[in-house]
Amino acid sequence: MAVLVTGGAGYIGSHAVAALLEKGEQVVIVDNLYQGHRDAVLGGKLYEGDLRDAEFLAKVFQENEIDGVIHFAANSLVGESMKDPGKYYHNNVYGTLCLLEQMQKAGVARIVFSSTAATYGEPERVPIDEYDRTVPTNAYGETKLAMEKMIRWFDVAHGIKFVSLRYFNAAGAHESGKIGEDHNPESHLVPLVLQVALGQREHISVFGEDYPTEDGTCIRDYIHVSDLADAHILALERLRQGEESAIYNLGSGNGYSVKQVIDVSRQVTGHPIPAKIEPRRAGDPAVLIASSERARTELGWAPRREKLEDIVTSSWNWHRTHPNGYEK
């Protein structure tokens, strides 16, 4: 039996594939390589194609004995989602519908969904709990919430059990140094800051310094990508053990501001990393920090790489040895 990883050539997906392979799992990967990289897939069976292609997806399920699905495939840029929400509904929501329909036809009844803490929107309290209200402030978060709700109704109607994992900012790279973060365009803070240290950018843009935080910049919860990969595997094991569907936050519980990330990156790289203040971006909440107590208690998950310095160092080791990403 194999695990199907959608979006498995992407940043977090490729780390999940690596973790599954390390555990001796058979892995099938589906990725349209729009944002993913063939070189990020360290093993398993890769199918290049789109979830919205019913004939293609049916073939994947027909050719493999799939035990469960880990679903990463989605567009995930907040700013882009505010400019082109239709793209996000079509790829994220419709793509998930196509996946669920093929799972139903194939009799596959387990899915771990890579969701986001953007489903909460501007939180009423910090740290955020899984039972807090979900009022997204951007189209990306809205589509992820719609995907969660759709999966839940497929559970009600067809018994497809799920674990939805809501998390914040992934960062870092695999300890082997073989895979890391390579987006085009890049939108994540840590690699953008490190691009300045590599001489690929003149400065790092800081979008707003008038937020109600100690230094005026947004605060986020950063998690090492390998810790996220571990959580997805633990969630799959929970479903294999016959447990009920659940939603979990994944977070270190520590919030770091944009300015703090820049300061730590200066220390790690030894580069001055000039910063330039820009206007706020639409849809950016001031503070997002998650409570992951339920994940720790019920999944047995705990991040092993919690310090921001360790996360940034891990990322720096990847970027300085792969200054152009996976490009040869």
Rank of each mutant, 00 (worst) to 15 (best):
G172K: 01
E130L: 01
I151M: 02
L194Q: 07
F162T: 01
Q26G: 12
R133G: 09
V206Q: 06
D39N: 15
A74W: 01
K276I: 12
S315D: 08
V41G: 09
D230H: 12
S205C: 11
L4P: 04
A282H: 15
A54P: 07
L228H: 09
P123N: 08
L4I: 03
A18R: 15
D210M: 02
G199Y: 04
Q241E: 12
T297F: 09
H15Q: 02
G49S: 06
L194H: 06
I151V: 11
E122R: 12
Y211Q: 09
R296A: 02
L299T: 00
Y88Q: 00
L189V: 12
H158T: 04
V30R: 10
L33I: 03
E306H: 02
H319I: 13
R304P: 02
P191Q: 08
K276T: 13
G13E: 04
I66F: 13
V135D: 15
V190H: 02
V3D: 12
H174C: 03
L4Y: 05
E55C: 07
Y11T: 10
I311L: 06
G270K: 08
L198T: 07
A9M: 07
M150F: 01
V108D: 14
L33P: 04
D155P: 04
G141P: 07
R294C: 00
Y11D: 12
N32A: 00
T217A: 03
V163Q: 08
I311A: 04
D310F: 03
E209T: 09
G216Q: 07
N249T: 01
A16H: 14
A118H: 13
A54V: 14
H188P: 06
M147F: 00
